[in-house]
């Protein structure tokens, strides 16, 4: 269980004080797949970094299993928009690295890395260097590396945002498959409405200036989901509803942003 309680985050930009987040409340159940949707500047990434323990609230608290988050931990694995693999290590050595950090001997760590690579569909690429892989393959490797820590929570910051449309669809289907079998809690940030609906048990929409939660919508599509789910007519209903929320929000915040820019 992840809990965000009355979290406010303010930055100083020169003389201005920017409200990145304002009184955000959010709870993520164990095993839930939560997607967060919102325009840039709504503080969704800041929120994710707080869950990861890389940033801290100005007011309020962020907790896991009732304990405040005081820093990064292997129980919460981050996946970034760019894979952030170590380019000087082979894919296998990248995936094995977190295991070796925890004291696993090299041989065992490499064997486990091969299992994880097989799981994400990269069985034949252990000896390749990240620079030799496509964007989608790099994200698979990054996911395998994060899973090597055996986290209970996955924190994903637009992990498919830099991929082409086809690769993105395939990756979404693979991720639901992996998640379904794992029991992981996932917090997934995106600005793609379809992606948010297809992946999420729940879609939280955030608005900008100040960053806050404006909608919390349960997605009642059957599990397990696959490419066929994408033809479900209810997706269109969710889509038009979420569009409506986002449009209302951008109409509301556009004048406010012009105000702030002055």
């Amino acid at each position: 269980m992840l809990e965000v309680k009355r979290v406010t985050k303010t930055f100083r930009r020169g003389k201005h004080v920017v409200n990145a987040l304002s009184a955000v409340d959010l709870a993520v159940r164990k095993g839930e797949f939560l997607t967060i949707l919102g325009p840039s500047g709504c503080g969704k990434t800041t929120l994710l970094h707080m869950l990861g323990g890389f940033e801290f609230p100005t007011e309020g608290s962020v907790e896991i299993e009732g304990r405040p988050i005081t820093g990064p931990g292997r129980d919460r694995g981050m996946v970034f928009q760019e894979a952030m693999l170590f380019p000087w290590r082979t894919v296998r050595a990248n995936v094995a690295w977190p295991l070796q950090v925890a004291g696993t001997p090299r041989r065992e760590a490499h064997a486990r890395a091969d299992e994880l690579l097989a799981m994400v569909g990269l069985a034949r690429f252990g000896n390749a260097y990240p620079g030799e892989l496509s964007g989608g393959m790099r994200q698979r490797a990054a996911l395998a590396r994060t899973l090597a820590m055996e986290p209970s929570v996955l924190l994903m910051d637009e992990p498919f945002g830099a991929l082409d449309a086809q690769t993105r669809e395939v990756m979404q289907e693979e991720l639901t498959r992996l998640w379904q079998a794992s029991g992981l809690t996932v917090v997934f940030i995106t600005h793609d409405i379809n992606e948010a609906i297809f992946l999420g048990d729940r879609v939280v929409v955030m608005g900008a200036s100040p960053g806050r939660v404006v909608e919390d919508c349960a997605i009642e599509l059957a599990r397990p989901r696959s490419s066929e789910t994408k033809a479900d007519p209810r997706i269109l209903e969710y889509r038009s509803h979420l569009w409506e929320v986002l449009r209302r929000e951008s109409a509301r915040s556009a004048p406010a942003m012009a105000e702030a820019g002055r």
Partner: peptide, 18 residues
């Protein structure tokens, strides 16, 4: 160095020396 690369190390719990 990309700060996120260092975050990966912190996430894994790597020591400063490592």
């Amino acid at each position: 160095i990309n700060a996120r690369l260092l975050w990966v190390a912190r996430n894994a719990g790597a020591s400063k020396l490592r």
